[in-house]
Write a protein that binds this DNA or RNA. Structure first.
Length: 419
RNA sequence: GUGGCUAUGGUGUAAUGGUAGCACGGAAGAUUGUGGUUCUUUUAGUACGAGUUCAAAUCUCGUUAGCCACCCCA
């Protein structure tokens, strides 16, 4: 086997495509019913789009990005996530001038050069949504409600929405300072990773899995204590709204996101059946990002779902239900007529899949092929039929065959299918 | 990125260092124009590269890839 797909990048084969298409279709319908419209941004961006927004000390930026130079020595990066490019686009095209509030969704491949595992690829796919232009807790509530409903629509049941608030930029900084101070005192008993985290990304110490670190974190100052009054109010109202609208969530004080741009509300959706990579989605508020990109002060919330992980959590796969017809032909003359008849059936019945023989195979093997493709009926066209200008239609289930005029084949098929 | 486990036809599996076999799948056929069951035939493999040995799927090393844990994350 000489050629292989690049490590961590997978082909989605025909046998698996149905679930992908179904997921995409369902997500589109659901998101559009909430007033979201799709946005498509390029896969390549100027590297600084990500370094500035995600944070240049975060792991995503320091070791996981596919970054390279183009022929003119510009540093380009394959998008590791969807929010930063959207905000870039939002500011570039001054979309804040078009409408005060914009609801956007996207779906497509993202790239991160991590060590692949189950549920973790280097090219993976996300579905995401962003509400740009609202500071209100209600935007947070609606987006969480929406994602929760959509996951249920996908057929996922036992997911958990973890919820926390990091507070506004000031709160976040104050909290980081407080935490840093506290951890410095305990530094000697922390694990190696956490020691570097104190310098690079203090908040992450809170969700370290090391036992002593967990204990240290338990008595550390929590995010909730350092929220300013408006932030606390925002968070309380959000929780209240979710409770009243019966969206289940779990307040998780040590939930911290890995991307620097998050402020205020953060949430993470996990699914227990997925093992190590159990986060199927995550999101939060990023109120200063639009401004960081040079736009106006704009509140925004969003989330992203990992499609591969959702598929792993799904139990049943949907099956295609379109009826199938197979046009079996024998001889050159019949082949031509067969192609024409197939065309006619397709035109009159757009919801039917019509196969024709493309190999000049024997009738036997054409029948076999028809069966393999789950054909409901076969139109047989051979020399005998041509002589009398008729075609034979065989109902595969009942084995009944009828002889009909060439012109009326589509009509007869309609009768059999019951359309 | 670190550590561990693994690698045999398309898929799932077998082979004390000594003939790579089985099942499923694919293809063709079973008196020449009719599918699903059955039967026959056929197809296709030791991930890659070195080494040890008379002899390697099997032992050693390297590479690559997958899985698991960590890291991180969707």
């Amino acid at each position: 086997m000489k050629y292989k797909a690049i490590r961590g990048m997978e082909d989605i084969l025909p046998k698996d495509i149905a679930i992908w298409q179904w997921l995409e279709k369902t997500a589109r319908m659901e998101l559009e019913s909430y007033g979201y419209t799709e946005i498509r941004t390029p896969i390549l961006e100027d590297t600084s789009v990500f370094t500035r927004s995600i944070g240049d000390t975060t792991d995503i930026v320091t070791k996981e990005m596919y970054t390279f130079k183009d022929k003119k020595s510009r540093s380009l990066t394959m998008r590791p996530e969807g929010t930063a490019p959207i905000v870039r686009s939002y500011v570039e095209h001054a979309l804040s001038q078009v409408t005060p509030q914009l609801k956007l969704y996207y779906m497509g491949p993202m790239f991160r050069s991590e060590r692949p595992q189950k549920g973790r690829l280097r090219q993976f796919h996300q579905i995401g949504a962003e509400v740009i232009g609202s500071n209100s807790y209600f935007a947070d509530a609606e987006i969480i409600m929406q994602v929760s409903g959509m996951l249920k629509l996908f057929g996922l049941t036992d997911f958990i929405i973890k919820l926390n608030s990091l507070g506004c930029k000031k709160d976040k900084e104050a909290f980081a300072g407080k935490l840093k101070k506290y951890l410095k005192e305990k530094e000697s008993i922390l694990c190696k990773d956490c020691k570097t985290r104190i310098k690079k990304n203090v908040l992450r110490v809170l969700d370290c899995k090391n036992e002593t670190c967990v204990q240290v974190a338990r008595s550390a100052p929590g995010t909730s204590e350092s929220l300013c009054t408006p932030c606390k109010d925002h968070f309380d109202k959000l929780k209240n709204t979710l409770t009243k609208t019966k969206v289940k969530f779990k307040e998780t004080g040590n939930l911290v996101r890995g991307l620097d741009y998050y402020t205020g509300t953060v949430f993470e959706i996990t699914h227990p059946s997925l093992g190590g990579q159990d986060a199927i989605g995550a999101g939060g508020r990023y109120d200063s990002l639009v401004k960081d990109f040079g736009g106006p002060e704009t509140g925004a919330v969003g989330y992203a779902l990992g499609m591969e992980r959702i598929i792993l959590g799904l139990k049943k796969e949907p099956k295609g239900t379109l009826p199938v017809a197979y046009v079996a032909t024998l001889g050159d003359e019949a082949k031509i007529r067969g192609i024409q008849i197939a065309e006619k059936i397709r035109k009159e019945m757009p919801n039917m899949i019509v196969f024709t023989d493309t190999k000049d195979a024997s009738l036997k093997s054409q029948m076999r092929n028809a069966d393999k493709n789950n054909a409901k009926l076969v139109v047989i066209l051979g020399e005998d039929e041509l002589k009398i200008s008729k075609a034979t239609i065989r109902d595969m289930a009942t084995k009944k065959q009828i002889s009909v005029g060439l012109e009326s084949v589509p009509e007869e098929i309609k009768k059999i299918v019951g359309a």
